[in-house]
Design a protein around this nucleic acid. Sequence first.
DNA 1: GCAACCATGATTTTCGAAAATTATCGAATT
DNA 2: AATTCGATAATTTTCGAAAATCATGGTTGC
Lengths: 214, 214
Amino acid sequence: MTLAEKAYISLRKDIVEGCFAPESPLRLADLSERYGMGFSPLREALNRLHAERLVTAESLRGFRVSARSLAEFEDALHARLLVETEALRLSIAKGNDAWEASVVAALYALRQQTKRQGGDVDELKTRHHAFHRALLAACGSDWLLDFFERLYAATERYRIPALLAAGPQKRDIDAEHGAIADAVLARDTEAAVALLGDHYLRTAALIRDGIKPG
Amino acid sequence: MTLAEKAYISLRKDIVEGCFAPESPLRLADLSERYGMGFSPLREALNRLHAERLVTAESLRGFRVSARSLAEFEDALHARLLVETEALRLSIAKGNDAWEASVVAALYALRQQTKRQGGDVDELKTRHHAFHRALLAACGSDWLLDFFERLYAATERYRIPALLAAGPQKRDIDAEHGAIADAVLARDTEAAVALLGDHYLRTAALIRDGIKPG
DNA sequence: GCAACCATGATTTTCGAAAATTATCGAATT
DNA sequence: AATTCGATAATTTTCGAAAATCATGGTTGC
């Protein structure tokens, strides 16, 4: 793996997890020291992140972490519903046995990690992402999957802090994931789409409360 | 404007217009000579284009122009219909007088350029793009507009060669654009969405014929 | 004859410094 | 006191070369 790829992965993680405050400048000298590499791979990573809208770039004035706002979150959420409901419909229509198996596997892996009490939170996030990707994986559209990845990262910036702030969950998220998987495996398109939509709207409600804390 | 931005614009144009054959390697030494600049701004541009899927990148093996295929075109077209119909609905719901005026202006400018016989074909493409963007501009969703731009560039790679190959048009494209604008200004959402969809499907039919020539 | 292997050349990737640009701060001016 | 101006510092952008990696072609050994 090249340094530029490592820089991309590290920076992305640090931005999504909020290690850098939104709108704070990402100075090359600082990043160079933090990640132990020269400017070239860092600029490369920053450009990729700019294309994903996780960082903003201004000509000759460098890069900043993108701002977070309720409006931007709502926008990303709306786009996500549009993209994911369509991708899910296609996936259910086109998916074969192997796809069904991968959904079952992803759900199982996610639940295993949820159960573990002192488990690695990074691993949990990875498996959550993997489950949602598995649902859409058979849609056959590279573009929709690409949009899914971008929107997932964009909303993750809001979801993670909200989850940490909210403390113990009243929702049974495992049950929600299970219901989605059941509908998917039963090829009940409309139910699956509705459940997925509900799932996101509930998370969104939580995040809204977190952003304008009350 | 920085060199990297110039490199991005030039490269993008040359790829979309087919100056580089699909799948041909984009070697830094060649590009450096062609555009008269060093590696750094070129790599920056190539990374941006990679994020837009106009070029592919393989670790330590450099960049290539993305392949063109009927399947990828159909995928982009499908995603475009999804994104643009939603954006158009939102735009019609939210747009104000200034937006209506900008649609009228964009349509007028496009028609003026269509009328000119020996006109600059670049200018025509710019205005065509501007008209379609104007339709969606009031949607209020940065994400949907971002997706629109990406998909527009992706499909443009197919549209331009098809138009050149097809010769004189039987379609009255001006009339199609006019009908869309009329429905939009009348705030007739369903008619506008249907007309926009038709507009793309007709272009798509043309392109399919061009790709598998018969 | 054929496959494995090494030397060579081509290419990408990375670094460190130079060039270009923007931001900062204090002095001079109104 | 506020503002403009210029010098200095900080930062980004770009270049050119060095390092690392991959592709090629010939050679050796079997």
